[in-house]
C-alpha cells in the first residue's frame, strides 16, 4: 500500500472508532463525568475540607490531577479492549485482516481511537473539576506529553488484553483486578510522604505512581517521584507494549488460525 492508501486506511479505522464510542456516549463518556463528579464532591469537598492541605495544596487541588489521569487510563484502556475484542468476537476483525492494511496501521488506528476517547474524557472531567476548584497548569509540556504517553500506553495494554481475551469476562478481569487497584494505590488520593518507608518503596513498583505523579507535576508543580525517571519508565513500558502488540499481530496469534 502507498503511504496515501495507508493514511486512508488509518483514518477509516480511527473514524470508525470515534463513531463507535460517540454513538454509545452514555456508556463511554457520561459514566466518567458522573463518577468523577462524585469523587470531587465526596473526596474533594466533603471529606477533603476536613483533611486539610496535602503537598502544599488543598486536598481538592491535590486529587484533581490524579482523578483526571484515572479517567484517561481507564478510558483509553477500555475503549481498545472492548472495541478490538468486540471485532474479534463478531469476526468483523476479518474485514481488516483480509485487507492489505499493514498491521502497524491497524494497531495505530485502534490505539489512537482509544487515545481520543481518553483525551475527550479528560477534557470533560477537567471541565467538571473547574466547578469545584481552580486549576493552574504548571507545565503545559509535561501535561501534554504525559497525557499522550499514558493514553498510548494503556490503549496498547488494552489491545494486548483484547488479543488474549476469549470471552467478555476476560476483558473485565484486568481492569477490575489489576488496573483499578494500581490506580487507587498509585497516589491519586494521597502523597507518598504519608506512607511508611517500606510501603513507599513498594509503591515505586507501581507504574501508575509515575503516571499520576508526573501529571500532578505538570499541573501543580509537585511530584513524589523524579520526573525524568517517570518519563523513562513510561517510555519503556510504551515501547515494550508496542513491540509486543506488533508481534501479536504479525504472528497472527489468536487472530488467525
Amino acid at each position: 500500500m502507498s503511504p496515501r492508501e495507508q493514511y486512508v486506511a488509518f483514518m477509516t479505522i480511527l473514524r470508525k472508532e470515534i463513531r463507535r464510542y460517540t454513538r454509545i456516549w452514555t456508556q463511554t463518556l457520561l459514566p466518567s463525568a458522573i463518577t468523577m463528579s462524585l469523587y470531587f464532591v465526596i473526596f474533594g469537598s466533603l471529606i477533603g475540607s476536613r483533611i486539610g492541605d496535602m503537598g502544599g495544596f488543598t486536598y481538592m487541588q491535590f486529587v484533581v490531577p490524579g482523578l483526571i489521569m484515572m479517567a484517561i487510563v481507564t478510558n483509553s484502556y477500555s475503549n481498545v479492549v472492548s472495541s478490538f475484542f468486540g471485532s474479534k468476537f463478531n469476526h468483523s476483525v476479518e474485514e481488516l485482516l483480509v485487507s492489505p492494511t499493514p498491521n502497524y496501521v491497524i494497531l495505530m488506528g485502534y490505539v489512537i481511537g482509544g487515545v481520543t476517547r481518553g483525551l475527550l474524557v479528560a477534557v470533560i472531567v477537567t471541565i467538571v473539576s473547574l466547578f469545584f476548584t481552580h486549576l493552574q497548569i504548571h507545565s503545559w509540556f509535561v501535561v501534554v506529553a504525559i497525557v499522550l504517553m499514558t493514553s498510548i500506553l494503556f490503549a496498547l495494554a488494552g489491545f494486548i488484553n483484547a488479543v488474549f481475551a476469549n470471552n467478555f469476562d476476560d476483558i473485565s478481569i484486568v481492569p477490575t483486578f489489576v488496573l483499578t487497584p494500581l490506580i487507587y494505590l498509585g497516589g491519586v488520593f494521597y502523597s507518598m510522604d504519608l506512607l511508611p518507608d517500606f510501603w513507599a518503596g513498594v509503591s515505586k513498583l507501581n507504574p501508575l505512581v509515575y503516571v499520576v505523579n508526573a501529571f500532578r507535576y505538570g499541573v501543580l508543580g509537585v511530584s513524589d517521584v523524579s520526573l525524568p525517571f517517570a518519563f523513562g519508565m513510561i517510555s519503556l513500558f510504551t515501547l515494550a507494549a508496542f513491540f509486543y502488540s506488533m508481534h501479536l499481530l504479525n504472528s497472527g496469534k489468536r487472530l488467525r488460525q
Binding site: M1, S2, R4, E5, Q6, V8, A9, M11, T12, I13, K16, R19, R23, G86, S87, N90, H91, S92, E94, E95, L96, S99, P100, T101
Partner: peptide, 23 residues
C-alpha cells in the same frame, strides 16, 4: 459466516471496507 459488525449501518460497512483498501 456473517463477519460484520451487526451494529454498523449497511453503508458504513461497505465504505469502511473500501477504506481498508485505501480507496
Amino acid at each position: 459466516e456473517f463477519n460484520f459488525n451487526v451494529f454498523e449501518k449497511v453503508e458504513d460497512i461497505v465504505i469502511n471496507q473500501a477504506g481498508y483498501y485505501g480507496l
